[in-house]
């Protein structure tokens, strides 16, 4: 399978956004899909949480809180 030039959402800085390409962890993918995070969705890192580790994220028009390692399995194109 060809790998498109995509990068994990955890490499982003606050304020950056992109379109979700795919997930690299099936375990987390199932749960992310359930709450409406899916390929094609627009993802924007709004701000980092206190004590590090978690992010306030906007998926399309909805707000979700995700951990750093959860973002790490979301590839952005």
């Amino acid at each position: 399978m060809p790998f498109p030039r995509s990068t994990a959402a955890s490499n982003f800085a606050a304020g950056m956004s992109g379109t979700i390409d795919r997930f690299t962890n099936e375990n987390l993918a199932g749960k992310l899909l359930d709450i409406g995070v899916r390929p094609g969705s627009r993802l924007r890192l709004v701000r980092r949480g206190p004590f590090g580790g978690s992010w306030y994220v906007k998926i399309d028009r909805h707000c979700v809180a995700l951990r750093q390692q959860e973002l790490a399995c979301i590839m952005i194109k």
């Binding site: 749960k31 709450i35 909805h62 979700v64 951990r67 959860e70």
Partner: peptide
């Protein structure tokens, strides 16, 4: 076991 945050923040 894996731990999740993945929390929806309603309006």
């Amino acid at each position: 076991e894996r731990s999740f945050l993945m929390l929806e923040m309603p309006d």
